[in-house]
């Protein structure tokens, strides 16, 4: 693992711990709001996508029938990654908050702590890999 990869991998848990530290700032402070909002919007999703990324890319994606832009598929894959980061983060926040409230164990700090722990564990876990090496990510002419 290169130092750059290590930084990218550790960024989401760092964001979580930073958000936890930001809770020491006064309520309503923009810095606190930014640290919390950025982590909740992207942190858990980024860690989960990082964990599953290689396994996800084993499965090739469908794309338009005819292609002239060689970068189109790569950009679609990037967009998909970004979408998953945001949606999985949203999902993680909603699921964790619901579990805690359903078990009468709810507090804002607990939600953030649980998400930060999940993010940290996901960052330290070995990457999930598929059964076979990645194939070209978007099949040419795969749509009807």
């Amino acid at each position: 693992m290169t130092p750059q990869e290590l930084v990218v991998r550790m960024l989401p848990p760092f964001g979580g711990w930073l958000a936890l530290a930001a809770l020491a700032l006064p309520g309503g402070s923009p810095l606190r709001g930014a640290a919390v909002a950025v982590f909740l919007a992207a942190g858990p999703g980024a860690a989960l996508v990082g964990l599953c990324g290689p396994a996800l890319h084993v499965r090739s994606a469908r794309g338009p029938v005819e292609r002239r832009d060689p970068d189109f598929a790569r950009r679609s894959d990037l967009l998909e990654r970004l979408m998953l980061i945001v949606l999985l983060s949203t999902g993680a926040v909603m699921i964790v908050a619901t579990v805690l409230i359903a078990t009468h164990a709810f507090s804002g700090q607990r939600v953030l702590l649980a998400l930060t722990l999940v993010t940290t564990i996901a960052a330290f876990c070995p990457r999930l890999r598929g059964a076979s090496p990645p194939t070209p990510r978007t099949q040419k002419g795969s749509a009807p």
Binding site: A19, L23, L25, P26, G27, G28, S29, R32, G33, V36, A37, L40, T90, V93, M94, I95, A97, T98, L100, I101, A102, F106, S107, G108, Q109, V111, L112
Partner: peptide, 15 residues
């Protein structure tokens, strides 16, 4: 409760 629980957390976390 999914959306509301998440918003409850956000209200507390934003202070």
């Amino acid at each position: 409760p999914g959306f509301f629980a998440a918003q409850a957390a956000l209200v507390r976390l934003l202070g």
